[in-house]
Amino acid sequence: MSAAPAATSTTAAEVDFRGVGKAFPAARGGGSEPVRVLEDVTFTARPGEIVAVVGPSGCGKSTLLRAAAGLGRATTGGVGIDGSPVRGIDPRCAVAFQEPRLLPWRSVSANVSLGLPRGLPRAAGRQRVSELLELVGLAGHAGHRPAEISGGMAQRASLARALARNPRVLLLDEPFGALDALTRLRMQDLLLDIHVQDPTTVLLVTHDVEEALYLSDRVVVLGRPEGTGPAGIAEILDVDLPRPRSREDAALARMRGHLLGLLGVER
């Protein structure tokens, strides 16, 4: 994918999903056939691109992300980052989960520092953490414990922790899903700000179609062709609009109707 903008190609990586499938062992007492959740997912996220993955719940969106992070292995196919396959936890990726997953006994800054790459000198690490806290607007809460900050703040800390790793691919697993509507909109804008400053490749799993359209360059829609059975790619939608976008954009509204139609068919 040489179409990538030259400015981003130094840090952002290409993520290549090739025939990714996932099957889980059959439930006890059920049939002996493994349950196939995902089948033959093939697409490529270009360096610096924001790709959203949407689909009905349980269709294996997170499975894709976990395969890219090396947290879970695909049953078939595989994921390549800049041409080399992902084997185990990949240092080129950083994940922000749906839950902030902050360690409650550590301060916000100590939690963020968990994401720092190993071998970074202490002073440089401290500098990086305070920069990131500034970036996500938590500079005033560096010393707080996770229990003392709100859900939105915790999610920002989780994002900062992922960024601390200097990832070439940022993997976001419904990171704003548990937040209230207003906080979610703010977090989306924060993500775009971050992406402007540090344009890594972003893979965003979400169940929110509007979020996907507002943020991403392309939307990968997963769906089950026959209503049951394993999910696959139903469509890849190009959102060919410059950012920042207006949430009321007429073109986005049309695409939204189209995507909802695609997803609605599956129910």
Binding site: E99, P146, A147, S150, G152, A154
Partner: peptide, 17 residues
Amino acid sequence: PGGALENAQGAAPDAPH
């Protein structure tokens, strides 16, 4: 530890506790 996590990710509004 568990309680803190629930606390941090619960349906808390975007304001400090």
